[in-house]
Nucleic acid binder design. Structure first.
Length: 287
DNA sequence: CCTTAATCCTGGAAGC
DNA sequence: TGCTTCCAGGATTAAG
């Protein structure tokens, strides 16, 4: 069970990358697979010759922002990695197979370090923007608020504007940005909500409960990534820390972790996604 | 409005 | 054992 990059993994990548790139100038860009880039993909579009002044995250996406205003958004998809290699680490040898065959973009920094984007399945990619305004109008502005920033009132509002199963709504990045299949299942279990709860049944109190558990679960996952992946720089970054803490995701057929329950966890398809939940604990539509 | 299915892709696992 | 098949995932698009 390899960890999938959702908000906590992306946040952790950002935290690791930030000190390595902030204030550094990109001296060269090696774009090996131009088809992973959406938008113009000249060296300048990929920040060559520019100084990185900011690294931001929204949902599952990261943006490198240069002093020229240009931005490069990185989306890891499901198998993407964004690695920071210390000065002296040769990028040719930094990744173990099979990941080493899928290095699509390499930035060389004036520190002597490198930033490597690798993604075997290529569900991820890079997006280039001439300015912060373009990034916002064309890409981030159409997403919902970040899952760590959204408040109960905003979540309640946005859920009230749609009529879908709750799981489908929470997976929709335009409603709230950052949750994927893993954390939605974990969140619904923690809140004791059925994945098929109609969104209109989510009242203010339930929205507040969702927000509280969302922050707790994502925060714990970020901490786990931070503790177990602390030394991934220069390595392949494949060892995740949070999967041991999954209570329902990937646990179909096992028993409900709630001591008072212990029913068999059930796996179904909701919103086209594999969904694992406890039919007893998560039976109520909304309560 | 909503849903489902197909699409992109590779590696790992499961089946025979 | 060595094949084949299937499945996982996010986001987008088309079709119903």
């Amino acid at each position: 069970m390899i960890d999938m990059p959702e908000l906590p993994e992306v946040e952790h990548v950002g935290r690791t990358l930030r000190p390595a790139v902030l204030g550094r100038t990109v001296t060269a860009v090696d774009l090996r697979r131009p088809d992973i880039v959406t938008g113009s993909s000249t060296p300048a579009d990929l920040l060559e010759g520019q100084r990185v002044v900011d690294l931001r995250r929204h949902g599952k996406q990261l943006a490198l922002v240069a002093d020229t205003g240009r931005c490069v958004v990185v989306h890891l998809g499901m198998s993407g990695r964004l690695l920071s290699l210390r000065p002296g680490v040769r990028h040719e040898a930094a990744l173990s197979p099979p990941l080493d065959r899928h290095m699509h973009a390499i930035w060389r920094l004036d520190s002597g370090g490198h930033v490597v984007f690798a993604d075997p399945r290529r569900f991820g990619g890079l997006w280039t923007f001439a300015s912060d305004a373009d990034l916002h109008t064309q890409r981030w502005g159409v997403l919902g608020p970040d899952a760590l920033a959204i408040g109960p009132a905003a979540l309640h509002d946005r859920l009230a504007r749609t009529r879908r199963p709750l799981k489908a709504a929470l997976l929709d990045q335009h409603l709230v940005a950052g949750l994927g299949n893993i954390y939605v299942d974990e969140l619904l279990f923690a809140c004791r909500l059925s994945p098929t709860t109609p969104t209109e049944a989510v009242n203010r109190a339930t929205a507040a409960r969702l927000v509280r558990h969302m922050r707790r679960i994502l925060g714990k996952a970020i901490d786990a990534g931070g503790s177990t992946l602390r030394d991934f720089v220069g390595a392949d970054g494949r060892v995740g820390g949070y999967q041991r803490a999954h209570r329902v995701y990937g646990q179909g057929g096992r028993r409900c972790p709630r001591a008072a329950c212990r029913s068999a966890l059930q796996t179904t398809i909701v919103a086209g996604r594999t969904t694992t939940f406890c039919p007893v604990c998560q039976a109520c539509a909304a309560a």
